[in-house]
Design a protein around this nucleic acid. Structure first.
Lengths: 190, 190
DNA sequence: TATTGAAGTTGAACTTGTTCAACTATTTTC
DNA sequence: GAAAATAGTTGAACAAGTTCAACTTCAATA
């Protein structure tokens, strides 16, 4: 079944009845994105939330100096959205690009609203997921402040080896917040 | 009324009926913390969530190298909690210290659970609050990667002047992720 | 009011990370 | 399979930020 992975994921974070689970899945449809294609581009309004079932995405922004800044990677089993753009109907500052041929379960903005109305339990599910997400962002801030570039690199490849292996050095460095030249030098000296 | 500020805050994020609002407030009690006192110390389990009604707190961690790392400041109208410790009943890595004589509305862990049970709407409220929080954390990561220390400093004092004015340079620098000596040099050259 | 302690300042030497440019793989594309 | 584009490497000069130590200023306290 196509939504199997999604169900596994929500059952980790909430206790949905069988009927709720079925109902939940109906709000999502599958979307295939081929390598290098964009699910969202800077300037567009994000009208969906996505759950990756295959492949991997890079979520990044391009700053005023023209540098790419990778916010996060979304591999299988990860969510994918621009919360700010989605909530406030404003142009996104993010790009979501497939690193390889990928598949996403999409829920549209309209469906997200009726999801919360028809399955009140979904509020708790997303509340808990968002809490976990905050913890991860806080940890990342602290790592950025307390670790050197090399330490951050080692942390990344040891904690996310599957994702790291799919990336070019340029993509990795834009996630770590360093230049690709410096990443090259870091790797040499290890 | 003591909970006025809290009500104002929740009404920004949710539509509670009058009775829900009253009910909501009953779960909180006031706690006074004097300057330099700790609401939570590294190693303790965080058994509360707090909403600041007066004063200001600094939430920081001390890393392996012995450096203080300020995660955020919680002034009037801000929430205060260690989500990870609270959710997973594990020792906190955070310290929450009052920068001045302060007051917090506290909800205990038990009460938080029954809050969600008695006021299902509270799920939506916190879900939305957490979403907003994620947006703020993401923005901070991007600023850390794309701005220089001086640019981050200027951003901080222009966007949070009330908080910034209460801080020593050492506290500000530990939030920006730089040494206090360097902050001193930055300030001189502006 | 004197004393202590903590906070801010400054300089010099140092480390970390950047920039730019030239070069070498490695992929993509036609 | 050749050409073109993209990715990784290296070095030298540079800029950003740290460290340590000495000094000054300001607040807290006895």
């Amino acid at each position: 079944m196509i939504h199997e992975l999604l169900l596994k994921h929500i059952n980790k974070n909430a206790k949905f009845s069988k009927s709720e689970q079925e109902e939940f899945c109906k709000f999502f449809h599958t979307k295939a994105i081929s390598k290098k294609e964009f699910l969202l581009e800077q300037g567009q309004i994000c009208k969906f939330e996505g759950f990756v079932t295959k492949g991997c995405f890079r979520i990044f922004t391009i700053d005023k100096k023209g540098n790419e800044n990778t916010l996060y990677f979304a591999a299988k089993d990860w969510w994918l959205m621009d919360i700010d753009s989605f909530m406030n109907h404003k142009p996104s500052e993010l790009n979501m690009q497939a690193l390889e041929d990928s598949e996403v379960l999409i829920i549209t903005q309209k469906n997200k609203l009726s999801l919360y109305n028809t399955i009140p339990n979904a509020e708790k599910l997303f509340r808990i997921m968002f809490q976990k997400s905050i913890v991860a962002w806080q940890r990342r801030i602290i790592r950025n402040h307390s670790l050197t570039a090399k330490e951050r690199y080692v942390h990344f490849i040891t904690n996310y080896p599957e994702i790291a292996s799919k990336l070019t050095d340029r993509q990795t460095s834009s996630y770590l917040g360093i230049t690709h030249e410096f990443l090259s030098k870091i790797k040499k000296l290890s």
